[in-house]
Amino acid sequence: MQKEKFTLEQVLNMDLPNIILYAAPVMFILVGLEWYFSYKRKQNFYDAKDTLAATTIGLVNVAISAAIKVVTFSIILYFYNVVPWSIPATWWSFILCLIWIDFWRYWAHRIAHENRFWWATHVTHHNSEKYNWSVSFRLGWTQHIKIVFFIPVVLVGFHPVVFFICHQIEVLYQFWIHTEYIRKLPRPIEYVFTTPSHHRVHHARNEKYLDKNYGSTFIIWDRLFGTFQPEEEQADYGITKPVNSYNPITLCFHEWADIVKDVRNSRSLKEAYTMVFARPSKLELKKKEFEKVKL
């Protein structure tokens, strides 16, 4: 049986459900409730300027996603149509696609922490020193280029509709794990799924917590690949080099600006390459090594 191929026009006319859009009112209500309880209990989980910055970043991101929708769909369809095989859109294909997307989200997320170029697309999500549901809105405006990491998902042959729905579910899952109010859950859940406890570790700048718990929906990838860290001491949130700004443009582009500055100040191609692609947590050490060579 010959595989059915899709045109961009066909997919755009499918009226795919926008799960995130439907969930948005609930998300904003929950943010409001969490903020209220934080205020009433004097827990200082929220900062008005920080939340406004996060919301602005999130809304602009929605606009960017809409603006590049045709490009995104075109990339996914191109690679789906290239391979001669396909997986039918059935209940079990949704489960398999969700797991496969999550596997690649783990590696995309890990690379975004261990490679400075990709870190620049992701740092916006981490430069808040608060941890609450509004932080889930802070997604850098250049993070859309990470679509390249999901081409392997499409090459397996998952139906485009299955892919787009599962990807939305993965993104939506990230919302609920950004909170202090949900503590550790029963052990079976904590062992398999990424929970608020795991993700608090991921957002911390405590030395023992750096570069840990990259899992999106499933924490099993961290357990398999040696990046798992249980929550022990209280997390200190933010990045190791604070931005000290609530300006959305600064929050989204400060790392890119620093990369350009470091490349301009480089004395060799090797140094310039290192300034772009070094592991962020090792960057200061690398800079000191190059300074010694200059002396």
Rank of each mutant, 00 (worst) to 15 (best):
F225L: 08
N247C: 09
F253L: 08
L269M: 11
K212Y: 02
N265S: 14
F218G: 11
F228R: 08
F228W: 05
K286F: 11
Q229M: 14
D211K: 10
L210W: 03
V263R: 01
Q234H: 09
P248R: 00
H254E: 13
S216N: 15
A204S: 13
I239M: 08
F228H: 07
L285Q: 14
N206M: 04
K287E: 08
K286M: 14
S281Y: 12
V293D: 01
I219Q: 03
I220Q: 06
K282A: 13
F290N: 11
N206E: 04
V260A: 15
F225K: 06
E232G: 00
A204R: 01
K287D: 03
T227G: 08
L269Q: 13
Y214M: 05
D236E: 15
G226E: 04
E233S: 09
K212I: 07
K282S: 14
T227M: 09
H254G: 10
F218Y: 11
Y273N: 09
D258Q: 11
I239Q: 11
I239H: 03
E255S: 01
S268V: 12
F253H: 03
L251P: 09
K282F: 07
P230D: 12
T227R: 05
N247E: 08
K261M: 06
T217W: 09
Y237A: 07
V260I: 15
N265P: 08
F225C: 07
Y273Q: 10
L251S: 01
P196S: 09
F290R: 02
Q234E: 10
T195Y: 02
E291T: 15
K261N: 02
A272Q: 01
K270L: 13
L269V: 07
K282D: 13
K286V: 13
R223Y: 08
D262L: 02
V201A: 07
L224N: 04
F228K: 02
F228Q: 08
V293Q: 15
N213L: 00
L283F: 14
H203N: 00
E291R: 15
Y214Q: 09
R279I: 13
A272W: 01
I219W: 01
K292N: 12
F218M: 03
Q229L: 12
L283I: 13
S216A: 14
Q229K: 13
M275A: 10
L251A: 06
N244M: 13
S245T: 10
N213F: 04
D258I: 11
L285Y: 15
N206A: 05
L285K: 15
E271Y: 10
A235G: 10
F253W: 12
A272N: 04
A278T: 13
K208C: 13
P248F: 10
N206Y: 07
H254C: 03
K208D: 15
E291Q: 15
S268M: 01
S281A: 15
P248G: 11
D262G: 06
N265T: 12
H202W: 02
R264M: 11
E207R: 14
F290Q: 11
A204D: 03
E291Y: 09
A257G: 04
Y237V: 03
V260H: 07
